[in-house]
Amino acid sequence: MRILAIETATIEVGVALADETGPLASVTARPGRRQAETLHPAIADACRIARITPAELDAIAVDIGPGLFTGLRVGVAAAKALAGGLGLPVVTAMSLEVLIAACPSGLGEVIPVVDMRRGEVAWLMPRSPASTVRVGTPAELAAELAELARESAAAAGNVGPVLLVGDGALRHRELLGASSAPAPVFGGIELAAPPVSSLAVLAIAAMTDGRFCDPAAVCPFYGREADARINWSSRQGRETVS
């Protein structure tokens, strides 16, 4: 089984190919805002490196977010079209799940934090299902971390620090680092973006378990309503006839 995985939820564009034996090839880049320019050549490159043509794929995997809307749409649109055009199923994963999967086990409690810009981050508390994604300000996350540390201490006495990974954790390191005792430990820059090879490995497991869907059903997880009203009132202001 050969899977092509697409990762565009945060600051990185990543494409990986994997089969049951593990990753076969991966291409990553930090293209700034140029996800649409970078992703498709990366898909072609990854296929070339792995000597696989798109027609030889068995499934497409994609990170559906949360993350940055533009990148998500570029990645999800590409995944839907590749899968649709090749007649393949899609495996979806959330950015936060991929970050957790990328952490070696035995590091204690992992809390992935993804930057959503406009002063918000998305995170997932330990042992919580992906459906309980939290979106809020870094200060709200800091309060939850403090609460978690208190609860853990009360339940188990002496507890180790939590591990914060993801670009949202790094961006708000100062605030989050002072949130609780013991102070959280931060993942490195290699865990800023969800690693696409981890997405590919997760997707192989999901395919084996039969957790996949039709490309028409795939949609980004935005984690925030479209702020239609804000846009509209500022447009009206600009257009006022004098």
Binding site: A36, L39, H40, I43, P54, A55, G75, A81, G84
Partner: peptide
């Protein structure tokens, strides 16, 4: 993104 992916496919 859709068109480029279909062209690749």
């Amino acid at each position: 993104s859709t068109a480029k992916a279909l062209a690749l496919a």
